[in-house]
Amino acid sequence: MNLANKITVARIMLIPIFILFFPLFPSWLIQKSIVFQHIDSYGLYYAAAVFVIASATDKLDGYIARKYNLITNMGKLLDPLADKLLISAALILLVSQHLIYAWIALVIIAREIIITGIRIVASAQKIALQADQFGKIKMVAQVIAITAVLLNNGPIRLANEIPIDQMLMYAALMMTVFSGINYIRNNYHALKLHS
């Protein structure tokens, strides 16, 4: 396994740590342990830090793979899978904490499943589908929005409590839907010709 793939695997391994920091523990456990009390109070900030680190590795493994010609079939499979697992885990946990609406998570996750399904079908037929910049922009928008929600606007909180985190989440949602539609539109003819 090359360095780029090891970084991708590390990103997947950070997901359980990210989940661990979410304050999802029962009250009786929180009352009995100072560690769980600390996580209950500050866990979302730790989760945000782990999430940002894990998200940053996406750029790092891609950069290393391209620079040192380490692009492999394993990397092509693991890299998007790691991204989808991280984003999906974050969205589900945010819904569980009532920090975002369930339908937002559902739309974003559904888009990822649909596009992944298209890629699997195309790959089975040996069709190379075009990727575009909107997919990368979508990922960046999702990471920024999720981080803002985790931090409850954190350093960007304004005196009048404008819900910037929710505005960013809606922007990420729109970018997600747009990039999905654009991906299908751009690759429709390639799939149709091989059907």
Rank of each mutant, 00 (worst) to 15 (best):
I118N: 10
N152G: 13
T8I: 06
A82H: 12
I118F: 15
A141L: 07
R157M: 14
F51D: 08
V52P: 04
T57K: 06
T176S: 14
M174K: 00
A90W: 01
M139A: 15
P163D: 05
H194E: 15
F22Y: 14
G62W: 01
I109L: 09
T147H: 06
L44W: 04
Q130H: 08
Y63N: 09
A128W: 00
F22Q: 06
L99T: 00
L151S: 04
I87H: 06
I34W: 13
A145R: 01
V52I: 15
A148F: 12
S27Y: 08
L93P: 00
R111G: 06
M174R: 00
I39C: 09
T57C: 10
A89P: 00
L168N: 04
S41A: 15
I19G: 01
M174C: 13
M174T: 10
N2F: 07
L91G: 01
T176M: 09
S179D: 09
A56G: 15
N160A: 10
F22W: 08
D132W: 00
L94M: 12
L158N: 08
I7P: 09
I108D: 12
A102N: 12
I181H: 06
I108T: 02
R119I: 13
A4K: 02
I34M: 13
P155S: 10
R119C: 09
V50S: 05
A124E: 15
D61L: 04
F22I: 01
L158M: 13
N2R: 05
A122D: 11
I30L: 05
V9A: 11
M167L: 15
I17K: 00
P80D: 10
K76S: 03
A48Y: 06
K6I: 09
I64F: 06
Y170I: 13
L158P: 02
P16A: 02
M74S: 08
I104M: 14
V149L: 01
I34P: 03
E161C: 00
L168S: 02
R111V: 09
E161R: 11
L81R: 00
H189L: 14
Y183I: 09
V9N: 07
I144W: 07
L14R: 00
I164W: 12
G135N: 04
I15R: 03
Q166D: 12
E161S: 13
A128F: 08
L150K: 01
N187A: 07
N2Y: 02
F51P: 04
V52N: 02
L93N: 10
I156G: 07
L91I: 04
E161V: 04
K59W: 15
L77I: 11
L29T: 01
L91V: 07
L70T: 00
N73K: 11
A171G: 11
N69E: 14
N153K: 03
I92W: 07
P80F: 06
N182L: 11
H98V: 02
V9S: 04
A54Q: 08
M169Y: 06
F21D: 05
L94C: 02
D58V: 05
I34D: 15
I146C: 08
K67M: 07
